[in-house]
């Protein structure tokens, strides 16, 4: 396959950035999207050009490090798939592909397609945990958990923190990310003691980071590589309202 790429290039946070067009030839349909970019970068290095910087690590869809907006869709149009798991067989020969970074004020561009997602860490710091120091835990079987609750909690806990939800949201909201953690811990008995304070602290931190508000457009869950369900946001809202009513 031969492709035309339009890639966002930005040398650093203070650079304005622009789209640059590249041709990539002899792409195999079995390549992953990132392997296709590897091919481009190998060439750019040898030509003395700056290769396109992008984040990636596990390349098996679980670490959450990779992420770019491909043809206007976070992680590309393939559903429930991270950028690293997207394969070139889903593109037409001769196609033009636009590649942009996650765009959100709380995710400033570091370079090219690399953004700073530390805002997510600070949201977790605000309360996305159960306060239980190592060594203090009771026997694991002392607290049974309904299978349904455990399964639902797992569905929420499967979030990889990639930020696609923010990138796709027309409001630049981080509600799905925040709600996933709140819901995971809300559904389990272990999460109950801190349930309301956690919801309040995390939501307030999310707002303080400068993410937009949620208008329930559902764009987030549609691009989420792990399919985090939208009702996590209802759960978050419920806990948050209760916390504020107290």
């Amino acid at each position: 396959m031969n492709l035309t790429l339009k890639v966002w290039r930005q040398s650093g946070p203070s650079d304005a950035g622009r789209m640059v067009t590249y041709r990539v030839e002899d792409v195999s349909p079995d390549m992953s999207f990132l392997e296709m970019l590897d091919v481009l970068n190998e060439r750019l290095i040898l030509e003395g050009d700056d290769p396109v910087a992008f984040d990636h690590d596990c390349r098996e869809g679980i670490c959450g490090m990779c992420g770019m907006v491909i043809n206007g869709v976070a992680h590309g149009e393939q559903r429930a798939t991270t950028t690293c798991q997207l394969h070139m067989r889903h593109f037409e020969d001769g196609a033009t592909i636009t590649i942009e970074p996650w765009r959100a004020a709380p995710f400033p561009v570091v370079k090219d397609l690399v953004v700073d997602r530390s805002a997510f860490d600070r949201v977790i710091q605000a309360g996305g945990f159960v306060s239980v120091p190592a060594g203090s835990a009771p026997d694991a079987h002392s607290i049974p958990v309904r299978k349904e609750d455990a399964d639902d909690a797992f569905d929420a806990a499967t979030c990889i923190g990639c930020g696609a939800c923010v990138a796709a949201c027309p409001n630049g909201s981080a509600s799905l990310f925040t709600a996933a953690k709140i819901t995971h811990l809300s559904l389990l008995p272990q999460g109950q003691p801190e349930r309301l304070s956690r919801a309040k602290a995390m939501v307030d931190q999310m707002d303080a980071e400068g993410f937009g508000g949620c208008t329930n457009t559902g764009e987030c869950t549609a691009v989420c590589p792990k399919g985090i369900p939208l009702d996590t946001i209802a759960q978050m809202n419920s806990d948050y309202l209760k916390a504020n009513a107290k």
Binding site: N71, A168, G213
Partner: peptide, 16 residues
């Protein structure tokens, strides 16, 4: 929302 996304996407396609 506008403040949260100061730089607009060149291409943007809705999925929902």
């Amino acid at each position: 929302a506008r403040k949260a996304r100061p730089v607009k996407y060149v291409a943007k396609k809705s999925q929902a």
